[in-house]
């Protein structure tokens, strides 16, 4: 009887900014192409639906050793994930992720941003990190950190107008991303400073 195919090992999750990937080590069979299939089980399935598993069609019989599970991990509950190998008629046991995965453990990075001085206007361009993201922006006139102002940006559609600057003054900005579904924020970005047009002596 043909030897059972070994189950995939080193199954783990890579999750950054609410994008979640299941990865595993390849099952090596010399000169052969092994294929993999992935299934998930949410807390609902575990508690209310007889511990049923749901296949991810985009990751059925694939040769890659990674699967984008973002679309299926769409609630802030604990998920189980598993993957098995297939080679012709041979099939492995399921390899299951050790422990649950909950999207509230995703790692959040500060947004990529660009601060623009457009004449006297302090403008900000923010990276679109997806519909789940909001941004908290802090900005201040250099040297007046105690008078720091805040703006919450809920949707990144265009350039954000932060302030009208004093001529020749330097203004600084930093931002963090926030995901309401999991109620967590990233660290702050690097601070970026720009100078308004004009001559500061105008204000003396």
């Amino acid at each position: 009887e043909e030897a059972l195919l070994p189950a995939p090992q080193n199954i783990s999750i890579l999750s950054t900014n609410m994008k979640h990937f299941l990865t595993w080590s390849p099952v090596i069979i010399q000169g052969e192409t092994v294929r993999y299939s992935v299934e998930f089980q949410g807390e609902y399935e575990r508690v209310y639906a007889n511990e049923s598993w749901i296949p991810i069609s985009e990751c059925s019989l694939i040769t890659a050793t990674a699967c984008n599970i973002t679309e299926d991990i769409s609630a802030t509950v604990a998920y189980n994930l598993r993957v098995r190998a297939d080679l012709g008629a041979r099939r492995s046991e399921w390899g299951t992720l050790k422990g649950f995965f909950n999207r509230n453990t995703t790692s959040l990075t500060p947004p990529v941003m660009k601060v623009i001085a457009d004449g006297y206007h302090l403008l900000l361009e923010l990276e679109d990190m997806g519909p789940a993201f909001q941004f908290r922006v802090l900005y201040w006139k250099k040297g007046q950190e105690r008078r720091m102002q805040q703006k919450v940006v809920k949707e990144v559609s265009s350039v954000v107008h932060l302030d009208t600057m004093e001529a020749g003054a330097e203004y600084c900005v930093k931002a963090q991303s926030y995901v309401e579904d999991i109620n967590r924020s990233s660290s702050f970005s690097q601070t970026q400073c720009v100078r308004a047009q004009g001559d500061t002596s105008m204000w003396l």
């Binding site: 998930f40 949410g42 807390e43 609902y44 399935e45 508690v47 209310y48 639906a49 749901i54 296949p55 991810i56 069609s57 679309e71 299926d72 769409s74 609630a75 802030t76 509950v77 998920y79």
Partner: peptide
């Protein structure tokens, strides 16, 4: 339909949450 089942799972887990 596997796709429909996946979406129902998504809704069900959100409702559970």
């Amino acid at each position: 339909d596997s796709y429909v089942n996946r979406k129902i799972s998504s809704i069900a887990n959100s409702f559970l949450s």
